[in-house]
């Protein structure tokens, strides 16, 4: 159900700009208003959520320790899985955020009659996840070309590396000369492939399908459609990049202006889907991008025996004092020869 709902939702999101631009000629709305509104929603929403999280207290120091703690000096500490200092936490967070350390541990439980419970290595989720996120990052960086003039060197470098395996198949150009295909960016293809694999995994693995809600299907489908429309624009429709850049640069300059030359409807679909993704981001699970940095089981030093951690709301509670205890049991204590504060 939630999958069908998500598929319908994404389809509607494709049809809205298609109809809007081709039938109603709402190019200003889809080319200018929507992108601005989306970016504003993204910035305000993400800041709000992250500030809300970071302003909420961390009452206890609760790292999940995944290795040997710092203890007796002759016992070797596993600093990265059980950080005993700030640099070690930074190391742990780096591995977590950039290399998905915890996901790398993943195992697969196999149940056999007997009973025999066995555990196999399972790195697929880690691999798909890593490919997905890094190709997405490269795609984002490549798109900075549309928002900068001159294009910064580092963006060009990323682009150069990304198109390293050039697939310049010779094709006849409009004037009869042979021209190459636009350089094939691996990132776009990998993004589409990895998102598709993550999607298939969600469909095929019964338990994962069972737990999936619209909030899981929808962003995956949205991203798959974004990648597809991007690839279609680049390789099939060969949308005029120069015209697109005129529009995007005018957006950056806060002097929005629709270029005189027409831009393909596919561009409007693409930018609408991207806008929707941006606007949807702060309200969704995609906020794991911000949350992963703030997870108290990962980003705290495991030194709570060495250094006192302060709970800002440490509650006032009623204690049962020793005096009350002795009052309850004084006679028995004396009889049993246990020292008391007050003789009976």
């Amino acid at each position: 159900m939630s999958f069908i709902f998500s598929l319908v939702a994404v389809t509607v999101l494709v049809l809205v700009p298609l109809v809007g631009v081709t039938v109603a000629d709402l190019r200003w709305l889809f080319g200018v208003v929507v992108p601005y509104a989306a970016v504003a929603t993204f910035l305000i929403g993400v800041s709000y959520r992250v500030l809300k999280w970071s302003n909420s207290p961390v009452p206890f120091r609760i790292p999940t320790t995944c290795g040997q703690a710092k203890g007796l000096p002759w016992i070797k500490t596993n600093k990265l899985d059980n950080p005993c200092s700030l640099p070690a936490v930074i190391g742990r967070m780096f591995l977590e955020v950039f290399l998905f350390r915890s996901l790398f541990r993943n195992t697969r439980m196999e149940y056999h009659q007997g009973p025999k419970v066995r555990y196999g290595s399972s790195k697929w989720l880690w691999l798909f996840g890593l490919l997905f996120h890094y190709s997405f990052l490269v795609v984002l960086i490549r798109h900075l070309r549309f928002f900068t003039e001159p294009v910064p060197m580092w963006v060009q470098i990323v682009e150069h590396i990304d198109t390293f395996f050039e697939m310049g198949l010779p094709l006849p150009g409009p004037d009869g000369l042979y021209v190459g295909l636009p350089l094939l960016a691996q990132s776009g293809v990998i993004l589409l492939a990895a998102a598709t694999l993550l999607f298939l995994r969600r469909v095929v693995i019964a338990q994962v399908r069972y737990i999936s809600i619209a909030g899981d299907w929808f962003p995956l489908l949205l991203i798959i459609f974004i990648a597809k429309t991007g690839i279609i624009m680049r390789y099939v429709l060969k949308v005029d990049v120069v015209t697109v850049k005129k529009l995007t640069m005018s957006l950056v300059a806060l002097k929005p202006e629709l270029p005189a030359d027409p831009i393909s409807f596919m561009f409007y679909i693409h930018i609408f889907l991207v806008s929707f993704l941006f606007a949807y981001f702060p309200f969704s699970k995609l906020m794991h991008l911000g949350g992963v940095w703030l997870s108290p089981t990962r980003n705290l030093v495991n030194n709570s025996r060495e250094k006192r951690h302060i709970n800002p709301w440490n509650p006032e509670v009623k204690f049962h004092t020793y005096a009350e205890y002795e009052d309850d049991f004084r006679e028995q204590m004396i009889e049993a020869g246990i020292p008391v504060e007050k003789e009976a």
């Binding site: 999280w53 970071s54 909420s56 009452p59 737990i211 794991h288 709301w313």
Partner: peptide
């Protein structure tokens, strides 16, 4: 408790239901 525990608030918000924990 959402207000008092960052852990609870963040854990309510960011799960992507990847299923890595399912058989653990």
């Amino acid at each position: 408790r959402l207000r008092r525990f960052r852990s609870f608030q963040v854990f309510m918000d960011i799960c992507v239901r990847c299923g890595a924990c399912a058989d653990k």
